[in-house]
Design a protein around this nucleic acid. Structure first.
Lengths: 121, 121
DNA sequence: AGGAAGTATGCGACCAGGTCGCAACAGGCC
DNA sequence: GGCCTGTTGCGACCTGGTCGCATACTTCCT
């Protein structure tokens, strides 16, 4: 457990949000300027392999990371980019349908569900 | 309507599947070797803006294009990459739930729904 | 058919987001 | 202190895609 990893975890815990690798890197570098962005990527990969964090794709840009403990689905507006964190229960119907029709277990966390928010119609 | 566009449309119609820009480019270049990959990208963008084709992200690799007329959702196995084309009806429950809980209209076509297929559990 | 005007194309340079190889540098253990 | 293993900084590289520019092709008008 090295200092760069500790700083990265701090950044992840402090801001319980969705942050890109670049943002997390900037936050770590505010305290330890020499930490290289590739170290951030490597540590994020390690933490993900350990099940501490997960990454999700909310659109066409960079991936966002957050703590695995607070995993959830995402609805993202195609128009304005607004993001809604969705509780897993909302996917229950789809989950059951995919299971019975295709014997497929869904994981609704990785890719956002796009669409239109109430303000963009 | 130029010849490269005609060839691209042919490639899209012929193989009613999910092809990456590179694959479509290779197919066009089999007949017209000078068509540049950037032309493929530009024409795909134009066709998408016109509503003829759509692209979807089935995983971490390149986007895949198919005819808009046959739009559908995708279930993709995180383990083996197997892809299932899902009829829109399967998303009806989720669609209603997102509507009533968040006033959000989902579009389930753009990003695949990841998970595990029946062979990978 | 000839020619002007507008659009599409080939090409290479470039960009974003990430990954990798490598040498230097910990930190733990004898 | 000396060795071994794992981590890091760094720059080069990779993929997937975009852009600027000069040339070539279409289209439309006559």
């Amino acid at each position: 457990m090295t200092s760069s990893r500790v700083l990265l975890l701090h950044a992840l815990f402090d801001s319980r949000g969705h942050r890109t690798a670049e943002e997390l890197g900037a936050e770590v570098q505010a305290i330890a300027p020499d930490v290289h962005i590739s170290t951030i990527y490597r540590n994020l990969d390690d933490l993900e392999r350990l099940g501490v964090v997960v990454h999700a794709h909310l659109g066409h840009g960079p991936a966002t990371y957050h703590l695995a403990a607070s995993a959830h689905g995402h609805f993202v507006c195609e128009e304005c980019g607004a993001m809604i964190e969705a509780p897993d229960e909302i996917f229950l119907g789809l989950s059951r349908a995919a299971k019975s029709e295709f014997d497929f277990d869904i994981n609704p966390h990785h890719f956002a569900m796009l669409g239109r928010c109430k303000d963009c119609r």
